[in-house]
């Protein structure tokens, strides 16, 4: 049941990414580039997603437990630390260079978009490099906010 619920969530999410145009890296770069061709669509995508999710989380949190699981797994870390800032800064740079963030790249890879496939290979390398580096430092696995 957990797997089916996750599959349904993925399907809705993937459809939303394609319909909103966010799987097109040129459109994302047109949002990040502040010039006369600025395209503010991404603000409306994020804004409407935020609006719906805010209401959805508020309603869900009235329950003691989720429908098909024992506990809610929301992150509890509220400390703004250096890895959060540095990691997010690096992510923003990579997002600008490629026009991809993880979700659209995964969707694009399934539709055999060569750009998304190449990005995703490098992305997986980046994930592995981070995990190797943090394992070598002996530090605990980084907290997962989402």
């Amino acid at each position: 049941m957990t797997k089916l619920a996750a599959l349904v969530a993925g399907i809705i999410f993937g459809a939303g990414l394609v319909i909103s145009g966010m799987t097109n890296p040129d459109k994302v770069q047109a949002f990040l580039t502040l010039n006369n061709n600025w395209d503010i669509s991404l603000i409306f995508v994020m804004g409407s997603a935020l609006f719906v999710a805010s209401i959805g989380y508020a309603i869900s949190n009235r329950r003691v437990a989720p429908l098909f699981a024992d506990d809610f797994h929301a992150p509890v870390n509220r400390v703004i630390d250096q890895p959060l800032l540095a990691g997010s800064a690096l992510f923003g740079v990579g997002w600008a260079l490629s026009g991809f963030c993880p979700g659209p790249a995964i969707v694009g890879a399934f539709t055999l978009d060569a750009r998304a496939l190449l990005f995703l290979l490098a992305y997986l390398m980046g994930v592995l490099i981070f995990e190797q580096a943090s394992a070598r430092k002996g530090s605990a696995q980084a907290a997962v906010d989402g």
């Binding site: 540095a86 990691g87 990579g94 997002w95 490629s98 026009g99 963030c101 390398m125 994930v127």
Partner: peptide
């Protein structure tokens, strides 16, 4: 971009 997004996220 992929390397930075993977590492950074």
């Amino acid at each position: 971009g992929g390397l930075l997004v993977g590492f950074g996220t």
